[in-house]
Design a binder for these strands. Structure first.
Lengths: 221, 221, 221, 221
DNA sequence: GATGAATGAGATTTCATTCAT
DNA sequence: GATGAATGAAATCTCATTCAT
């Protein structure tokens, strides 16, 4: 931060204030790989390039590392989703498309993908984690999306649907896509291809699976 | 059940062939509540009404309890879904509706809901679990659904979509609904109401979120 | 023992009073194979063809099985060695040769070989075992052999040696031969060949390793 | 050693590089006393002046302690025996006498005596131990001794005997002497007196138990 | 600030022994 | 007499956390 210290090449960045962040990076990788319970503090330390004891200089417990990890990651994501939600005013389908594509782009970065994976995996064991995530992310995003849908209905862009339940129809397919890939290794050939999933999903989400009646009539005639 | 025998303390129950099942029931409850790693074998035993050592009469290890648990639960579910998939031939939307409603009904039973919760939570730590689930459930259900969609497209019921990716659009919303409720306690007032979710989801899935063009025209004029 | 019971074919010997002996046979085999500590009572029971609980009808504890085992085996061996020691009066070398050859013949039977193996292995952990073995075997055999040697010296058959220490020179080579074979698998090709060992050993024991002085002279001239 | 540091309780000793050796010393004493199976890791730790967990800082398992123990002890002994065997060229009886006296001197140290006791006791349960002992000791010593005997025969020092079997006659008496003392408490008054045993044994080994024929004649006449 | 040796509570697993049937 | 389900003490090993240096 300071003018003299700045960022003087990677060689001189040892022992900087970035230490806690390096611990979090290491912990994230390991929590994803093996889970919270099966990750030893010593592993985290080793991967972060410092000693076991040093971890406790920055965090009072292993659990605190997990909490800090989640806190660090979720706020920016929620913020940028909310930003997009607020910036656009017209056809909500445009906004939904933008947000889903933004999400798809972000989640293609494994470092970011790691966070929801971690949260979904560990949240049952750490109620504070659930509360934090709810407070910081869910309780801010859901009302915004619900409002978006409600306005879309009011303005005639969308059919009459339950805004709250419809959120599941908008986000759920992404979650399942990621879950299938991460938990069972089931994904399109060559990778997640989240962009293709979003394309396919948006076309169904907006226009439905059903063939247009006219089309059917045409082909039948 | 008998008035005299009733449930008079655990000491006098011998040669109950239901023992392994009682252990599994106890383990399921605890694994869900606290996770596999944080559940002690002694907890399982106590809840099943026997001693720590007795658990090892029926299962060679704690991990074996988990595997048996999953095996016991998943096959029937997959079977009945496949049954429905095979029994109907015409409009695939009917079949999809039937299967989703069947799923909704089943998952309303907490004992059944517990299984996917458990699997999703622990599968990262137990590759064998993932393989078993894949083999027994996923690899049987996915091809059946893909075939259903493909035939629906060929017969003019459905629009041109990617059958494989579309599976995510069909199932994903249920997963998210359950996840929100179970992980963060976010659900409609008064309960999961999976039936309402499925209603809302099916209407979007088949007909899309977009208001019909004529409607828009009308409202705009 | 009784005229009627006798030994009426193997078919009718089930549930006879031989039960405890069958337990001991099974225990012996397993104690040899895996040691006392690593042998489970259930293994003994299974091998003896009865249930775990039945073992406790005959023996109050696992340790009691070991003691009974040793007691059963050692007395006859000591008896027959003592018999031979007492029966001969003249040249003690004849007696020593007879006894060693008798020992060699007996120890070629794995069932008999098992006992000293077992005793040597477990005696450190069971002082009572040591006492029993000492009382029943060692304290009867050693004085007899010492007396034999002493008389041999007095009668001019043997050189002046320490009778007590000489016992080690007489028996030690057999012990080492068996130990090398049993512990490390080091033995003559094709088996223990205890008879050959005894031949070689007796010739050294009586006449010494050294070449006769005259022979040396001859070969040198 | 230093007057101020002395041995002021276990709490203030840190970074002692001798730790693993202290653990081995403690383990040796206990394994001898109670056997491997009956010795708890906590006992070892307590005797070494540290905590249960600390043992696992130095050795990955209790079994590894045993292996390290044996490895530490046997190589020097085998080495010095081989040294003696190789250094002398002439009359093999001289070499045999030197080696046996060297062995006697060494085994008078209880710390060294403990090792063969331990190995003989536990080797049946740990095949790796047997292999290690064979590789490091037996397979190096036996060929050397066999060669010595063979050369002694060729050069006219020794009678025609089986070199391989004769090894038993050379070493066996020492083994039995030690075994009787350690297992049953049978030994000359006042201690092992291995030197006296070796004296008596060597005289028999080289010259035989039999009285010289001339002597017999003399005494008879 | 940093280290890593040390601790000790706690987890899984084994098995001799008991005892209702 | 026989069974084998059940117990529970005890053993090995792990690892979050502390603290002397």
């Amino acid at each position: 931060m300071n003018e003299i210290e700045k960022d003087r090449g990677p060689k001189f960045r040892r022992r900087a204030e970035a230490r806690p962040d390096e611990v979090l990076d290491a912990a994230l990788a390991l929590f994803i790989e093996k889970g919270f319970a099966a990750t030893r503090v010593e592993d985290i330390a080793k991967r972060a390039g410092l000693s076991k004891g040093a971890v406790y200089l920055y965090f009072p417990s292993k659990e605190a590392v997990l909490e800090a990890l989640v806190r660090r990651a979720i706020v920016p994501i929620a913020d940028s989703a909310l930003q997009t939600l607020h910036d656009y005013e017209g056809d909500p389908r445009i906004v939904i498309g933008l947000v889903l594509n933004m999400l798809a782009a972000r989640l293609s970065d494994p470092r970011i993908l790691a966070m929801p994976k971690l949260i979904f995996r560990e949240v049952l064991g750490f109620p504070e984690l659930a509360q934090m995530y709810r407070r910081e992310v869910i309780d801010r995003v859901i009302p915004a999306v619900e409002g978006l849908i409600r306005r879309g209905i009011d303005q005639g862009y969308l059919r009459q649907v339950d805004p709250s339940l419809t959120i599941r129809s908008i986000i759920g397919p992404l979650l399942l896509h990621v879950a299938m890939a991460e938990l069972f290794g089931i994904m399109p050939e060559g990778g997640l291809h989240l962009d293709k999933l979003v394309d396919n999903h948006l076309s169904i989400l907006f226009d439905g699976l059903s063939a247009p009646p006219s089309a059917k009539t045409w082909s039948a005639s």
